[in-house]
Simulated scan of single mutants.
Amino acid sequence: MADSILAETEKVLYDVEDHLAHVTINRPDKLNAMDSETYAALSAAWREFQADEDAWVAIVSGTGDRAFSAGADLEEAVEPGTVEWPEFWRTQEEQILNNGLEIWKPVIAAVDGYCLAGGTTLLLATDIRIAGESAEFGLSEVKRGILPGNGGTQRAARQLPYTAAMEILLTGDHVDAERAAEWGLVNRVVPDDEVMDTAEEFAARILSNGPLAVQAVKELAIRGRNMSLSDAMRLEESFQYHLLQSEDAKEGVTAFAEDREPNYQNQ
């Protein structure tokens, strides 16, 4: 792997098979809470996924069935009895999916158990979200006198109905999977033992499409939110022009004419 931190620690696992990457937070004894080393490894995993031309879709999850992630590991990030926050600030500085790193490949979240604080912030940076029936969500930072960093306040307000965003941000309370689905925080709620299978089914459906087109669609959808409609449509036209020059676009049309499944090469 290009990033040595991934080889040096097992706090984040990364592997790719058949164009599908699995990014796994691997601290089950800590409810997959993230200390500075975990954040660094997670950053390395996302950079690996971003650069790997053979990885077209990612699923992010946590080891075990108790938690996707309980957020930043405050026990290790803050020294009791002091007002020093050096390790906590390191968790805010890493270039990760929800903080500064632009990844236009689709990312699916597979959520078991607790998805709290930085876990929910990470969730908000994914594209498709599958939750188990017993999953719980929350941006609980205000209960500790801090705020949801790494984009938590901004993405919650943009992605959820205003009243829902204010409830989860201001109370810090947990919400169950059913409520999260009602708000649009997750796409599907499934039995706990079907979470990963469902996430992989979504991944397979995306992987059957042209990878360049999928990445272009994601980038346009995200960039266009901060543009006027006319400017966003001009950008869309530009992307379409370049996409039509690709081998994958030619393959897609040819496969349709020949009544067969396309064989995309990400070219």
Results as ranks from 00 to 15, higher is better:
Q245E: 12
D231N: 15
E251H: 01
I206N: 07
E236N: 09
A249P: 01
L244S: 13
A255T: 02
E236L: 11
N209W: 08
E261N: 03
A199Q: 01
P191E: 01
A199R: 00
I222D: 10
N226E: 12
Q240F: 15
R260A: 00
M196I: 11
S238H: 05
A203L: 06
L229D: 04
S246Y: 01
L243V: 06
S246C: 02
G252T: 02
E219T: 08
S228H: 12
H242L: 12
E261A: 04
A204M: 06
V195D: 01
L220W: 15
A232N: 09
A203D: 05
Q215F: 01
S246L: 02
R225S: 07
I222C: 04
M227S: 09
I206G: 07
L229H: 05
G224Q: 10
E201V: 08
R205Y: 10
D197W: 02
D259F: 03
N209M: 15
A232F: 11
E194T: 00
A249V: 09
L207K: 11
R234L: 11
T254G: 03
L244T: 14
S238F: 04
A203H: 04
S208W: 08
D259L: 04
A204R: 15
R260V: 00
A216K: 08
L243C: 03
L212K: 15
Q240E: 12
A203S: 07
R234Q: 12
E247Q: 09
E200P: 04
L212E: 14
E251L: 02
L244C: 11
G252R: 00
L212Y: 10
S230L: 12
F239I: 05
F239P: 00
M233V: 11
R260K: 09
Y241R: 15
E237N: 13
D231A: 15
A232W: 09
R234T: 14
E194H: 01
V195N: 01
G224A: 15
I222N: 06
E247V: 08
G210R: 09
F239H: 09
H242Q: 13
S238Y: 05
E201G: 04
P191Y: 00
N209S: 12
M227E: 13
R223S: 07
Q215D: 04
G210M: 11
S246N: 02
L243R: 06
I206H: 06
D231K: 13
A232G: 15
A204Y: 06
T198G: 03
A216P: 04
E201I: 05
E261T: 02
E200W: 06
A232E: 08
L243Y: 14
K250W: 06
M196Y: 12
R223E: 11
S208A: 15
M227C: 05
L212S: 11
E236R: 09
F202Y: 13
N226C: 04
D192G: 01
